[in-house]
Write a protein that binds this DNA or RNA. Structure first.
Lengths: 114, 114
DNA sequence: TAGCGTTATGTTTTTAAAAATATAACGCTA
DNA sequence: TAGCGTTATATTTTTAAAAACATAACGCTA
């Protein structure tokens, strides 16, 4: 085949006890929950099942003493979910790291000479 | 649950046309092929099937005008495989990038304050 | 020239991941 | 108080990935 453009790519995430706790997808999920106030709406927007979204939410929360995504069922609108201040800090800091990482990728993408 | 040690983690790889071409696993495979002179031995060492290893080798080679892993069947020992100079450069440069990335991860692992 | 160990390749089977389905609980609202 | 839309959760089904299996080709070596 042909030798096209080589680009450096990658992913970062946050581990707890060697287990993945937060990455790009989960951060996006949290953001959409915050924007919509609903796990279901966030799931629909990201084209995942409600179950999958809820499992992720649950998994994230399990790593904190008090949940960073707080949800309740029933009531006006059928239920709702919000992101705590701590959770928002989480999002913010992940974005900051992601930005630095993107820079890293760009800076090093040109270092090939095959 | 409890709020344990957060650590930054990640992976990098090299893309061609938006498709993954080379990452940590494939580099290790190439190194083991070089060390043993055999795709089969490399596969055994990495606990993958020969087929899987060969598919990876094939996939890597398909991205270059001339293969970076050259193999032949029959003959002394039943067959053999070698890594070209170009392939060795590939390995070297990936390692260099990986080293820089490891530094990035370490440097940024402490930037949490939840 | 028969056998050996490897490369090369296709097919089948198994396993794991993802998706789909089902259902209960809940608290507002009409 | 019946209904709505959501959260919460378990179970089943489907799909995709991985593994296993099978077989041919090859060129040395004995």
């Amino acid at each position: 085949m042909k030798q096209a453009a080589f680009t450096l790519n990658g992913r970062i995430w946050i581990d707890v006890d060697g287990e993945k706790m937060l990455g790009h997808g989960r951060v996006e999920l949290m953001e959409r929950i915050q924007a919509s106030g609903s796990i279901r709406q966030a799931a629909l927007q990201m084209k995942m099942s409600y179950k999958q979204a809820w499992d992720l939410v649950n998994h994230i929360n399990s790593h904190f003493e008090s949940p960073v995504i707080i949800s309740q069922r029933g009531g006006k609108g059928g239920g709702s979910a919000v992101i705590t201040a701590e959770g928002q800090k989480l999002i913010q800091q992940f974005h900051h790291l992601q930005q630095k990482f993107n820079l890293f990728l760009r800076e090093n993408s040109g270092s090939f000479s095959f």
